[in-house]
Design a protein around this nucleic acid. Structure first.
Lengths: 349, 349
DNA sequence: TTGTATGCGTTATCAG
DNA sequence: CTGATAACGCATACAA
């Protein structure tokens, strides 16, 4: 019976190992592997082959420490289980990976405390840049300030703090809301409830503005009692719509989120209210289920693909020392489905 | 008008800066910040305060290089936009973060090439451990071998390669399939189609086995022509069900994925086939939409929460030098909904 | 074209 | 209890 070779230890191969086995110096190896033109092609080949043979893996930790810069980009999002964020992430990866950057993703689950922790982690790991979208809970921005004050490039997207310097890439929330509410009005609905998230967040504030302006432009008066704040979960949607219909005699809903709109639909069905005949519903974000549910739900489609593109390109620009845009606004589309329109064909504004 | 302090450069504060400003040595500062018992409480406080005052952030890159070990854990998944994976991730975070580890997530989008890249990235960044679930495309496992041969702890979950050493945490796929098919049979369906993913993946193979065994135990014969491989997208589901119903006179579907089951429902509705009266449908994974769609869809609920728990605990065990389990099997539940049962109440097996 | 020397920021070992 | 020194692996300024 053969003995196992216990002398094989797991110490990783380094540049020095390659240098020793080839009787050159570590600097030569380092340069060869970096494809430095000052090294002859012949020794480059020699070194690359030996590196391959020994199973060498560069130690990016050492390299980052030495260079003072890393090609890892940190991305902080509220949650990866929402189609918008998950699609933005994929789109960012699509550009950043081929360009030689690595993306690491951290979620905050909408908690400011987690957001702070995430930033701390990324700063301590000396990432090359940070991409982020604020959590609902965040009302104070000292931790964002830390990023820029340490000289780390910051790109904010979707949920942003305008007061912090750096590029902000946002959706046209005002337009999304304006289109939605105008559409409801054109469809004949008159008493339109609005579900909104915490109004400290730009996205909800802007959608709220769009809602108000659309009412005004149509000559309808704004009624404060029709607005429900902190109402973006399925559960709050379920509860709040009850009051809206029973007491306030509302005949439509524009919700700043699909989940709360879904909750409203749950309750409306239970109450026997007919959608869209008696009540119109428009959600926001075009979650996967909006198209699948019955009746299918009208919703505002943001453009996560395009947003991811712009984010990635901005990052590359910054890291190349070029001046990026201060603000980018991505257009949205209203996808009209069964929940807000008697004619069941899909129209796009 | 005051001048801006342009002398303020953005060099990061280091341990040495703290040491100098307090007239102690870097070693003392390092120990104090690490809460080493050999340092007096008084100087600890002094040092901590100064660190705070100067806005010191430890350089984890340097620390990792020196210690040779990092407390960053890498997690590789096929995609974050599926409820199962996204829930597992959240659950892992819930345990690993409070324990002082950082999780970085990389998606492969089901491509072996991306999987290789992901592993390379993590190895080069010297992560402390790797958690992973295979991509559909992967049929060769040399890159997994690299992880273990470099001495990095590896925990595989859900889609695993049994031949690679290390803990494997899997769902009870056989049981999920067996319950599903038995339920369909008990409900009176007889000719049951099976949609499966690539059979090189353990998950699909095991579900296929469960399907066959359930048929056999019920005294029904297995018919090869009722099985459709590479059929787990909505689109393939749409196409394949057509043949199954029109030519093969099938009266039910057990699909290894919810998306393909959804596609089947799309087509069945178009064909005017009544669900569940004329045709029964059971999906797999309990995607969000299964409960929302109409009719709601029976599906196998895996337990991502529990799986995440076990993964995280295994990681901690390994990093503490304890011996982890070689294999863990997580039970599943069948959620019976409208698509497979005339009685529309929710039953759980 | 290659080698020599040095330092990135931290921590561990050995002294005192 | 604290200090001096070296080393982790790599990349670069400077020399040859």
């Amino acid at each position: 019976m053969e003995l196992l070779d216990v002398s094989m230890d797991k110490r990783r191969i380094t540049i020095k190992d390659i240098a020793d086995s080839l009787d050159v110096t570590p600097s030569t190896v380092s340069r060869a592997l970096a494809d430095n033109p000052r090294i002859s092609e012949s020794t480059k080949k020699l070194i690359r082959d030996k590196a391959e043979e020994l199973g060498y893996e560069p130690n990016l930790i050492a390299s980052t420490l030495r260079k003072g810069k890393s090609d890892t980009i940190g991305m902080i999002v509220p949650g990866i289980n929402r189609s918008f964020f998950s699609n933005v992430i994929s789109s960012v990866e699509e550009i950043l990976n081929p360009a030689g950057f690595n993306l690491v993703i951290i979620q905050t689950h909408e908690k400011t405390e987690n957001e702070r922790r995430a930033i701390r982690t990324l700063l301590r790991n000396r990432v090359g840049a940070i991409i982020m979208s604020l959590s609902v809970q965040t009302k104070e921005y000292g931790h964002l300030q830390e990023i820029t004050s340490k000289g780390i490039p910051l790109v904010q997207f979707d949920r942003v703090c305008k007061e912090i310097e750096g590029t902000k890439i946002v959706n046209d929330n005002f337009q999304g809301a304006y289109l939605s509410v105008s559409h409801l009005i054109k469809s004949g609905y008159r008493k339109i409830v609005h579900f909104t998230g915490a109004l400290n967040l730009n996205v909800y504030k802007e959608r709220f503005e769009g809602y108000k302006t659309a009412l005004k432009d149509a000559g309808l008066e704004f009624d404060e009692s029709l607005v429900f704040e902190y109402s973006i979960t399925r559960d709050t949607g379920r509860r709040n719509i009850n009051k809206a219909v029973a007491e306030l005699k509302a005949d439509a809903l524009f919700s700043s989120g699909d989940f709360s709109a879904l909750g409203a639909v749950d309750t409306l069905k239970e109450m026997g209210v007919k959608i869209p005949d008696d009540f119109g519903v428009v959600g926001y974000a075009n979650e996967q289920f909006t198209e699948i549910m019955h009746p299918s739900m009208t919703s505002v489609e943001q453009n996560p693909q395009e947003m991811g593109n712009r984010i990635a390109k901005t990052i590359i620009k910054i890291l190349n020392g070029e001046q990026p845009d201060e603000q980018v606004i991505i257009p949205v589309r209203l996808l009209i489905r069964e929940s807000s329109w008697i004619n069941k064909t899909l129209i796009t504004y």
